[in-house]
């Protein structure tokens, strides 16, 4: 795409995103505002996973562990420190906690490759799942309801539209940062590792460190997404880190476009809209969903981004 056209698209998308709550209010469909927040939060989760899988070639089937851990940072703080309810404090804390967790877990997982990496990330996510399932002080199996959303100075976060704008701003900032990262020296090295790790190693790159940094950043962003989801739903439960949530995030990445900057967003939107539309038709909509996913694998392996990509030279 030519530069000006890309900018035009961006402007249109941004205008639509900003106008969405107004349109929903006029149409009397306020439901769509919180639906859009959900899409953006999932888009953030999928984008963070895309950094791992799409840019770095590290297929993780346990990314939801960080999603859930981020949510539990919010939930546990609301129990232990009901006074400290500023999002300016809690969200960065969720990011920091997950960065640390991801750093430690990544240091172990990244010793393995390929299938073993897939399975060891899954194993860690299962551990998270079972640990939080048995954490009875924080709701255990049943999860935990939050009394209210975190606060931001000068904003009424209880309003769905306000919360939507906050999520939109965070997502836009993260996506912008990911775009910079992708084009940066670090991003190129990551792409090189995905292409041929042995070669990168023999060029003098300490590939393990680059992968570990990527894993840490991805975990931190997933934690942020989890913290936002906890506020969006007012509820957290171990199900947020169950393995099918990790699977869904992976599905979104592939559906949207592996390694493409907008892939996570496109995939999350497509998946959740599909789910929304199909579930309106039949109780057994999941069969259709499964068939669509199968179709993607066999007929559109590049995902939605592939439909817009230039023809290969």
């Amino acid at each position: 795409m030519a530069g000006w056209r890309r900018h035009a698209w961006l402007l249109v998308a941004l205008a639509a995103a900003l106008a969405l709550p107004k349109i929903a209010a006029i149409a009397g469909q306020d439901f769509y505002v919180s639906f859009a927040s959900r899409v953006l939060i999932w888009a953030l989760l999928a984008s963070s996973l895309n950094l791992l899988v799409g840019m770095g070639g590290m297929v993780s089937l346990g990314h939801a562990a960080f999603f859930g851990a981020g949510a539990y940072v919010v939930a546990i703080l609301s129990v232990e420190a009901p006074g400290g309810s500023s999002a300016l404090l809690v969200w960065p804390l969720a990011v920091a906690v997950n960065a640390l967790l991801a750093f430690l877990i990544g240091a172990i997982c990244l010793r393995t490759r390929g299938v073993y990496f897939i399975m060891i990330t899954l194993a860690f996510a299962q551990m998270f799942f079972y640990i939080f399932t048995s954490l009875t002080p924080y709701g255990g199996d049943d999860g935990l309801s939050l009394a209210r959303r975190l606060t931001l100075p000068g904003l009424d976060m209880a309003g769905d539209a306000t919360f939507y704008y906050v999520v939109l701003a965070i997502f836009a900032a993260c996506l912008f940062a990911l775009g910079r990262l992708k084009a940066s020296r670090f991003g190129r090295v990551l792409a090189g590792i995905k292409d041929n790790e042995a070669r990168m190693e023999s060029l003098g790159y300490a590939t393990f460190r680059f992968k570990l940094v990527a894993y840490t950043v991805a975990g931190a962003l997933a934690g942020l997404a989890g913290a936002l989801m906890a506020n969006q739903n007012g509820f957290v439960s171990p199900n947020m880190m169950s393995w099918d949530q990790s699977g869904i995030a992976l599905v979104m990445v592939i559906l949207g476009g592996l390694g493409s900057l907008w892939g996570g967003f496109a995939g999350a939107t497509a998946f959740l809209v599909l789910e929304e539309v199909l579930s309106g038709f039949s109780a057994h909509w999941q069969i259709v969903l499964g068939l669509v996913l199968l179709g993607v694998v066999f007929y559109a392996p590049l995902g939605i981004a592939g439909l817009f990509a230039r023809k290969p030279r």
Partner: peptide, 11 residues
């Protein structure tokens, strides 16, 4: 130089 640079575009 270091490749742990995350912001400036390589191009």
């Amino acid at each position: 130089g270091s490749s742990f640079r995350f912001w400036q575009a390589v191009k």
